[in-house]
Amino acid sequence: MTNINEISNELSLEKREELIRALMARFEKNMHRHKGLEWANVQAKLDANTEKLWSLNEMETTGGEPDVVGYDEKKDEYIFCDCSVESPKGRRSVCYDREALESRKKHKPENSAMDMANAMGIELLTEEQYRVLQKLESFDLKTSSWVQTPSAIRKLGGALFCDCRFGHVFLYHNGADSYYGARGFRGSLRV
């Protein structure tokens, strides 16, 4: 018996080719994000790990504009990250996690950042990953993005988010159940 998730997570050949073309064009247009890396090697990894294309497509369709931002030599993995100028439009107005979502009595958002990331097969950026991303170029000049929150902070009801203002990356805190039209999340995927 076929698992329904396997069916829904499979891209058609046409959709895969369309996604690969978009990823390749973005890669070639933004070489400053991945100096020294070659698209042919990235393409070979994608061809060998086609199940990751579904997650990359989710990143793409929610406005993340995923691109390669690094290569982990020890694990032989390329690191894709959301590189949209602002926090991805299709992932805004979400609280931090399921617990925060369920704790809201009124005006609940439709989803949480952690639930969306898990469903997409990606991970929220850590503060460190967010800061590394900001060294490539400036992101979130008008928006903000939830980042992975240490459990000690989360246990007290808080969650962390970052943005870039005045040429500086700021880390803030908020109640995990808060949500705003200008706050979303950025994710990463290893292939």
Rank of each mutant, 00 (worst) to 15 (best):
S55R: 03
E51D: 14
S138R: 12
C95A: 07
I79G: 00
Q148T: 12
W39A: 03
P150L: 06
R104G: 04
R165E: 14
I20M: 09
G70K: 02
V147Q: 00
D72E: 01
G90V: 09
G70D: 01
K52W: 05
A44H: 12
E86Q: 03
G90P: 05
G167P: 12
Q43D: 13
Y96D: 09
S87Y: 04
S87K: 02
L160E: 03
L53W: 06
G36P: 03
L125H: 10
Y172F: 15
M24D: 10
P109H: 08
G121H: 07
E38P: 06
N41L: 11
P109I: 06
V169I: 05
F185I: 12
Q129S: 02
D72C: 04
V132F: 08
L13Q: 14
V85H: 12
N41K: 13
M59D: 02
K35Y: 01
R16L: 02
G184V: 02
E99Y: 15
D72M: 00
L19T: 10
M31C: 08
Q148F: 04
D82V: 08
K45M: 12
N41C: 07
G64K: 04
N49C: 05
L37D: 01
P66W: 03
K89Y: 15
P88K: 00
K45E: 13
C164M: 14
A176H: 07
L56C: 01
R131G: 05
A25E: 15
S8V: 15
H107Q: 04
E60I: 04
E10G: 09
L136W: 09
E28W: 09
G157Q: 08
M116V: 06
E6C: 03
D163E: 12
A40F: 09
D82G: 06
E110Q: 14
S144G: 12
L133S: 11
F139N: 05
E99G: 12
G64R: 03
K108M: 05
G64T: 08
H32V: 11
T2R: 10
A44F: 13
K74C: 11
A152N: 03
E17Q: 15
K105L: 05
V68A: 00
G36M: 02
E10L: 09
Y130H: 05
K142C: 13
A48K: 10
G63F: 13
V191I: 15
G184H: 00
R190Q: 13
E99A: 15
S84G: 08
D140S: 10
Q148A: 04
L160H: 06
G36A: 02
M24F: 07
S188T: 14
E73A: 11
D163P: 06
F170D: 11
R183Y: 03
S87W: 01
R98W: 15
A113Q: 00
L56H: 01
G187Y: 00
P150Q: 01
P66Y: 04
N9K: 14
I7T: 13
K75V: 15
S103I: 07
D115A: 01
